[in-house]
Each structure stands twice: as C-alpha cells, then as structure tokens.
Amino acid sequence: MATNLFNWLKQSVLGRSSCKRCLELLELITDEEASPEEVKHFHNHINECLPCYESYNLEKSIKEMLQTKLEKKQVPDDLIQSIKLKIRNNL
C-alpha cells in the first residue's frame, strides 16, 4: 500500500518542472560539482518534495556503498621494490 502510494507520487512529480530541474542537479550535488546557487535551489526543493528527497538519499547511499563496501586490495610487497629496481637500472 505504502509502495503504491510512493510510486504514484513518483509518477506525479515527473511532469513537474521544479522536480525535473532537481533531478538534473542530483548528481552534480552528490558529486560536489554544483554551484552554491544550485546547492541552495536543490536543498530548498528537497525540503518540501518527498520523492526528490528519496532520490537524493538513494543516490547518496549508492555512492557511500561503493566507497565503504568494496574490498580494497593491498599492493603486493614486491611491486614497489621491483619498480624501483627497474628505474634505478634505467638512470
């Protein structure tokens, strides 16, 4: 029931130009590439628009997920030594 309502809201905002502008700004905002005016406009809008606020949270949570959950590999010990050796031989 709640999901249906949410989807209905989502559909209904697609036609609104302020939401369209907001969604265009979404990635600029989460990537920290937006101008101060754009940031202001965006936050004013999501303060009063639930579907855009949800979209913003989703975008943010995916970015966070990528940053925190992907395994970071350790550089193999011998790699740096091997590079340095090759370079010293080239000097």
């Binding site: 989502k10 697609l14 969604l23 265009e24 579907p51 979209s55 949270n57 989703l58 949570s61």
Partner: peptide
C-alpha cells in the same frame, strides 16, 4: 532524467 528504479535505500544499505 528519470526515476526508473524501484531500488530502495534500505536495500542498498
């Protein structure tokens, strides 16, 4: 510009 996904924040988390 579309909200094509049904993906939810809780799922992602």
């Amino acid at each position: 510009v579309s909200m094509t996904t049904d993906l939810r924040v809780e799922t992602v988390q």
